[in-house]
Structures are given as structure tokens and as C-alpha cells.
């Protein structure tokens, strides 16, 4: 299963995504330079975290014009999985591939810490190895992760089971203290209607190895491989 990690000017977590696929999942992976517009050889595209183009205008606002990011639209239309993490999620929102927008954290501060997530939908290519309702420990690191969408959009998201992860406490309860940025409905990650595009603010690539304090994020990548195998892919290829 060949992964492509898009490298935009200002991408920071490209190295971490690359590392987790290559060294933990042990699948082939390439960096995809932002000028590249052909993604045909990949089975999954990751848009990593960072501050693309400095994010001086609005998070993700400039990145959406880069050739590689534009090519993601067509890639996703063919049903292939796209995973946007942190800045990658923000870019997917700017592109309109996922609904809603990001506001500054309620605290108005950048926040880096481990949080708990409740898995809301385990029927996606990214979460099929989790249990529904499972609570996992994953770090966040962002200044603008306060997810917002209007009531109609939220209703559609909830109805379509597009909310994939929610911030919760260790017991899976949605207490106010367990929402680190003020996101509506405690939303930490959502997918499109087809389920093959996932955007999430927390960083699963940062918690896929014992040495990093949690391996809870690893199942995102293992789910992807398992989904791909079930859909005719051959592992290690």
C-alpha cells in the first residue's frame, strides 16, 4: 500500500507522517512535492500538519491552490482515502472537501497536550480497527482547532455519522473540561459523506509507538491498511 505525504512550504509533520508509515506500519511511502499534480501511484494521501505558507492569511487558505492539493480532489473522487491531520484538516475545510471552518482556540492560546477522544464511527477506512465508543489518548498541537459549523451542517454531520472523533474525558463523557479548544459538539475529526476523506485536529502519528507514551494512534494507520486489503490491495506492495 503506497502512501504519499504532501510537502507544502511550511509543512512540519510531513517527517512524522513519513516516519510512521515507513517505520511503524512498514509500508512504502513518498514525499509528494507541492508542485506535483499526479497522484496516480498512491493508494492513500496524507496532508500533514504544520503552517503551510506560514498560515499568515487564514489557515490553509493558500495551500488549497497548490497543484498537489488540487489533485487531491480528483484522487478522493475515485474513492481513495485522504487523511488530513491538523493543518491538513484545515486545508480540507478550506477546499470544501469537508464542511465547516476553524476558529481560534477558545483560550486564544496554542495548546499542545494529550487529550482523550471517543471513537464515534468505526465504519470508516481510518477507524475500522477501533471499537465504537472506544476512548483513545492522542496529542493535539494547534492554535486554531476550534471547529465550527452552522446548525444545519451539524445536523447533517450527526445524521450521516460523519463525526468520527469527539473530545471526551477518560471515561468517554463529554464534559466541558474535556473540550480543549471549544469545538462545537466536541468535534475532533469528521469525514465526508462517502467516508473516504478524514480530517482530524489530533495527531495519530505522534502516538503510534510505545516510546512516545501512547500507541493509540497506530490503529488509524492499521485500519487504512486493513481496509485497503479488503478492497483488493496487497500489503507490502
Amino acid at each position: 500500500m503506497r502512501f504519499g505525504v504532501i510537502v507544502l512550504p511550511g509543512s512540519n509533520c510531513d517527517v512524522d507522517c513519513y516516519h510512521v508509515v515507513k517505520e511503524v506500519l512498514k509500508e512504502p511511502v513518498d514525499y509528494v512535492w507541492h508542485q506535483e499534480d499526479n497522484l496516480d501511484r498512491y493508494d492513500c494521501i496524507m496532508i500533514p500538519g504544520g503552517f503551510s505558507y506560514g498560515d499568515y492569511l487564514r489557515v490553509g487558505a493558500i495551500a488549497k491552490f497548490s497543484p498537489a492539493v488540487r489533485a487531491v480532489e480528483e484522487f478522493a473522487a475515485r474513492g481513495k482515502p485522504v487523511l488530513g491531520i491538523c493543518n491538513g484538516f484545515q486545508i480540507l475545510l478550506e477546499m470544501g472537501l469537508l464542511p465547516g471552518a476553524m476558529l481560534h482556540n477558545e483560550s486564544l492560546e496554542f495548546r499542545c497536550e494529550f487529550v482523550h477522544l471517543r471513537v464515534e464511527n468505526n465504519q470508516t477506512p481510518f477507524t475500522k480497527k477501533y471499537r465504537k465508543g472506544q476512548v483513545i489518548r492522542v496529542p493535539i498541537a494547534h492554535g486554531e482547532g476550534n471547529y465550527y459549523a452552522d446548525e444545519d451542517t451539524l445536523a447533517r454531520l450527526e445524521e450521516g455519522r460523519q463525526v468520527v472523533f469527539r473530545y471526551s474525558d477518560p471515561e468517554g463523557r463529554l464534559s466541558p473540561d474535556s473540550n480543549p479548544n471549544g469545538s462545537v459538539h466536541h468535534i475532533a475529526g469528521i469525514c465526508n459523506e462517502a467516508g473516504n476523506i478524514l480530517g482530524m485536529m489530533p495527531h495519530p502519528e505522534r502516538c503510534a509507538e510505545e516510546i512516545l507514551g501512547s500507541t493509540d494512534g497506530r490503529l488509524v494507520f492499521e485500519s487504512l491498511r486493513s481496509w485497503w486489503e479488503e478492497n483488493g490491495g496487497v500489503a507490502g506492495g
Binding site: N12, C13, V15, D16, H19, V20, G49, E109, F110, R111, C112, E113, P139, A141, H203, E205, R206, E209, I211, L212
Partner: peptide, 14 residues
Amino acid sequence: IWRQYDYMVRTNTV
């Protein structure tokens, strides 16, 4: 202080 810094990026901080 330090929760305002990304102390994990590059996944080397153990």
C-alpha cells in the same frame, strides 16, 4: 508555559 509550545513535533521527544 510549555503547553503553548509544540514540544512533540518531529516525534523525538521522549
